[in-house]
Amino acid sequence: MKKLYLAVMLLGGAMMAASNAGAVDSTGCGLGSMAWRGQSGIGPQVLAATTNGLFGTQTFGITFGTSGCDPNGRITGGTGRMTLAFLENNMEQYAMDAAAGRGETIDTLAGILNMDSEKLGEISKTNFAYLFADENVDAVQVTLNLLELVQNA
């Protein structure tokens, strides 16, 4: 039940961001987008053309430049959204750090989750097989698993 609640929260956040992506606002590439409002010409068009899709679909693998020109161009939002955005882009690095129980992504996630880095390393290593159930795991699943483990810790 808790897991379902988390999933709804996360996906809701992702969908809100996705709907923003469709708006003219999103062509800001992380910086302010106000300047482009209602403007035509080369700048806005080029920016709009390079706008990428949003997160929520990344399966295990290396992301090739996802967050170039989308609202995700900045680290934003609460713990859940930040964790998901981070894992969308760093899942394969976190997988190794989780397997080993230490590393830069664990230090970073510990910051996002506001917890002790060593503790997160231990949780990740002990529960590696749960976090990364199989090779088709996606970032949403890893995020949900991780948030659940951290909440119950």
């Binding site: 590439c29 992380g30 992301t63 170039g68 680290i75 882009n89």
Partner: peptide, 12 residues
């Protein structure tokens, strides 16, 4: 022009 993205993206 300037664009901004997370440093983890730059590193990747």
């Amino acid at each position: 022009g300037f664009t901004v993205k997370p440093y983890y993206d730059v590193i990747n």
